Computed example of a mutant assay.
Amino acid sequence: MTAPHIRIRTARAADDDALGELDRATWSPLHAVTPKPQPPYEPFFDARHRPEDFLVAETEAERQGEGEGRVAGYLRLVPATPLACNAHVRQIQGLAVAEWARGAGVGRALLRAAFDEARRQGATRMTLRVLSHNTPARRLYESEGFAVEGVLPGEFHLDGRYVDDILMGRGLIGADGH
């Protein structure tokens, strides 16, 4: 696929339907620990999942109407915990890329925008969790400077087998990310 022009922005309440559709379309046991969503669908945004916690990737190559692009992906970026002593850490708690946009740099663009946003918020460190069998995601994270910092063996039982939960992290300051 030819890389489209990708624009990253903060989500808006009006993105609820598009992000909900993307979330359902990209559901997979490769990354999901919750059951596949079934109708009637819950709203994408709620008290714990606020628009301001999400970065949205949209393609500019397929502009429609009032400068809106086609939603290609999202990333949820939140404080790791509510503790003041942990306020310097941001955590990625969800990353999804539409099937039609995979391989075009959307996930990488979202990660790099998340690094910038986390720094803007004063963070010096970023963490995430990824399932051990999600090789494509692990490769992407490693290529962007994340390192495995812990493993919870057999943490989830998915599709009839036990899957490790991999904890990854990276620094956000200095030339090498630390």
Rank of each mutant, 00 (worst) to 15 (best):
F54E: 03
A72P: 01
A14Q: 08
L167Y: 15
L22Y: 06
N86H: 10
G169D: 05
D16L: 11
H31P: 00
P136I: 04
G169F: 09
G103F: 05
A113P: 02
R120Q: 09
E60S: 08
A80C: 09
T10R: 08
T34P: 00
L140I: 04
A87N: 12
E66H: 11
L158N: 11
D116S: 14
D46T: 07
T81F: 14
D165R: 10
L172R: 10
R125C: 14
H157F: 15
S132R: 09
A11V: 04
D164T: 10
F45V: 05
E68F: 04
V97K: 05
C85N: 12
A98H: 09
L110C: 03
R90T: 01
A98Q: 07
R161Y: 15
V148W: 11
G107N: 03
D17V: 11
P4F: 11
V78N: 01
A14H: 02
E144G: 07
T135Q: 07
R70Y: 05
L128M: 13
A113C: 08
E68A: 11
D159E: 14
T10A: 09
F44L: 05
A137V: 02
L77G: 03
D16K: 08
G73A: 07
L131I: 11
E155C: 10
F146M: 12
F54S: 03
T34K: 13
G145C: 06
A147M: 03
L167H: 13
H133A: 05
A57K: 00
D176K: 11
P153A: 14
Y74Q: 03
D17Y: 05
D53T: 08
P39N: 02
E149P: 00
R24K: 07
P35T: 08
Y162L: 06
Y74W: 13
V78F: 00
N86V: 08
A87Q: 14
L95Q: 13
V106Y: 04
S143T: 14
M168S: 07
G122V: 08
N134P: 04
G94P: 08
Q91D: 13
V163M: 02
E58S: 01
Y162H: 13
A25R: 13
I92W: 03
Q91T: 15
P153T: 07
L110F: 06
L158I: 15
L110I: 01
A84Y: 09
L83M: 12
F156N: 05
E52D: 15
A84R: 13
R138V: 01
V151K: 14
S143R: 15
G122P: 06
F156H: 13
I8K: 09
L30M: 13
L111C: 06
T81H: 11
L30P: 00
T127M: 14
A109N: 07
E60D: 07
V151P: 06
F146G: 04
H88M: 08
G171F: 09
R102K: 11
R48F: 02
A109Y: 07
V163Q: 01
T26K: 04
I6F: 03
P29E: 09
W100V: 05
K36S: 10
R76F: 04
E155A: 15
R102N: 03
T2C: 01
L172K: 12
P35W: 10
F44N: 01
E117Y: 10
V89M: 12
H49P: 00
R76G: 01
G174F: 03
R125M: 15
L172F: 11
P43N: 06
R119W: 06
A101F: 09
E58N: 00
A57I: 00
G150H: 06
D46I: 03
V33T: 15
R125D: 09
P51R: 07
R50F: 03
